[in-house]
Design a protein around this nucleic acid. Structure first.
Lengths: 119, 119
DNA sequence: TTCATAATTCAATAATCCTATAAGTATTGA
DNA sequence: TCAATACTTATAGGATTATTGAATTATGAA
């Protein structure tokens, strides 16, 4: 990840519709969602959602795959985690307590979700 | 953190000069840096850095404090960590391996920096 | 007080981004 | 093949954002 890439990614995330989409896809997981379902969920027109999905795809934040008539989009987790790493690089300058809240909360999120997912 | 706030924060980070500033302040730590030093480091005019610092302040990503003739800016870590939490909320849907890379890398960053900082 | 330094504000211009509408492409089923 | 479904692309507008240079405010030193 370099600065110019990161600017593009942050730009892709700095729009209400696109941020809603990404957050939804992050929750949806690798299975992803069809463009139509996304449009309905965020409440925008087909052409508008298409415009924003293309923007997200251009940034590399989502991947698209056709499934019959639908096109299914899914979150690119590696890009997201790479972006976070880039932003917090050398973050704490020897003060772990400064960036600990990030790792702590994400660990809890993972653990909770995994727990709920058990059979 | 809510969606509208997050959009403002991502917007603040989606500009080359501002991203450079934030990353520099994240490394600089609580001591922060004066506006003039920031301008020189990122290579832009005083009025331009002032414009961008104001934008970052408006978003709540930096705090400003006057010190004699200088105005010293420092990163608002809680906002950054809050933003990351918001983005990755319920991220992995029971698959901890998906978001583990984030927490792992930040943990390593903290540990390494803390180690290097020992007397 | 007067001058120099540090930074902000203002105004004008240039660049970029978002939305809506309309037209186009791919896929499936009658 | 014809029509319907699911999306995408093109275009044109209005809105927001970035940059520059000149003017302004705040602080400290001679």
């Amino acid at each position: 990840m370099n600065g110019k890439q990161a600017v593009v990614l942050f730009g892709a995330l700095s729009q209400e519709t696109r941020l809603k989409i990404i957050r939804m896809l992050v929750v949806a997981g690798p299975a992803g969602m069809a463009a139509g379902a996304i449009a309905e969920a965020v409440g925008v027109s087909a052409s508008n959602v298409s415009f924003h999905l293309k923007e997200l795809e251009r940034a590399g934040l989502v991947a698209a795959e056709r499934d019959s008539r639908s096109i299914v989009y899914s979150a690119a987790y590696e890009q997201l985690t790479g972006l976070i790493r880039f932003l917090m690089e050398d973050c704490c300058g020897g003060r772990p307590e400064i960036c600990a809240p990030v790792t702590h909360t994400i660990d809890i999120c993972c653990a909770t979700a995994a727990e709920e997912n058990k059979p």
